[in-house]
């Protein structure tokens, strides 16, 4: 098993932020993740691409325990994910997730959506939480929508609110599960712009997406998955111009 050479480099830089070792995940008899080994360092932006059913979503959902891995180790910021409920809560505090279907709470206003967790989990006072929320909403460029309900916003605006909601918990890692797949084309750019700004500000991000332009422009590393395995890992420059594996070449030829 060849070790990821990048791991050595990050070990030198400091503890890896996220570590997956020999991770397997089964759904019944179907194996969704096969021997996943991946290390992600601080402030790194990793983009995961691959065909449908390759296990990309399962991978990042194992990182905040929305899915439970069957074998191997998942370590986030030094905390290993086991059945320990308390530790799971800690990990979830430090990771923020943005979903394909936004999953905003429809019965709460935008600002209530964003302040819910900070107030009730981090016990931040109301005014402070609202100030924090407005900062985040400004960062995603929709502060004027604070008192609207999610149902009154467009898809792109909703997804940006979802990003603000995740950021309001001030996580160390942001996980994106196909954030633009459910958006109309004209709204994809506004969300990708926000994500790019986030990356440049130094956030550690793992992004599952089909947006190759984003991967090329923003990623530090690109991971290609197929059939539950990591097939190839590399920088965007090498990945898109000089892929090594045949499966990678096949996939890229079909989409570029």
């Amino acid at each position: 098993m060849t070790a990821d050479t990048y791991t050595d480099a990050t070990q030198a830089a400091g503890e890896a932020m996220i570590q997956l070792e020999a991770v397997d995940k089964f759904f019944g008899d179907f194996q969704a993740l096969k021997d996943i080994n991946l290390s992600i360092g601080q402030q790194e932006v990793v983009v995961v691409i691959g065909p449908s059913g390759s296990g990309k979503s399962t991978l990042i959902r194992c990182i905040n325990r929305l899915e439970k891995h069957d074998r191997g180790r998942v370590v986030v910021d030094g905390i290993e994910l086991t059945d320990d409920v308390k530790m799971i809560q800690v990990v979830r505090r430090e990771t923020g997730m943005v979903f394909q279907q936004f999953n905003l709470f429809p019965h709460l206003t935008v600002i209530e959506n964003v302040t819910l967790a900070p107030r009730n989990v981090r016990h931040i006072a109301k005014q402070e939480a609202e100030d924090l929320a407005m900062t985040m909403l400004t960062r995603v460029k929709i502060p004027e929508q604070a008192h609207k309900f999610p149902g009154q916003l467009s898809g792109g605006q909703q997804q940006r609110v979802a990003i603000a909601r995740a950021l309001a918990m001030q996580p160390k890692v942001m996980l994106f599960d196909e954030p633009t797949s459910a958006l109309d084309p004209e709204m994809i750019k506004e969300v990708l712009d926000v994500m790019e700004e986030l990356a440049q500000s130094g956030m550690t991000m793992i992004v599952v997406t089909h947006e190759m332009g984003f991967a090329r422009a923003v990623a530090n590393r690109v991971v290609f998955m197929s059939d539950g395995q990591i097939v190839e890992v590399g920088t965007p420059e090498h990945f898109f111009t000089d892929p090594q594996e045949d499966r990678t070449k096949l996939f890229l030829s079909q989409i570029l």
């Binding site: 905040n64 325990r65 929305l66 809560q89 979830r92 505090r93 990771t95 923020g96 997730m97 979903f99 279907q101 999953n103 905003l104 709470f105 819910l116 967790a117 009730n120 989990v121 909601r165 995740a166 918990m169």
Partner: peptide, 11 residues
């Protein structure tokens, strides 16, 4: 999805 979003926020 609502349940998962709540979980992801560590509620």
């Amino acid at each position: 999805g609502q349940v998962e979003a709540a979980d992801a926020l560590s509620l």
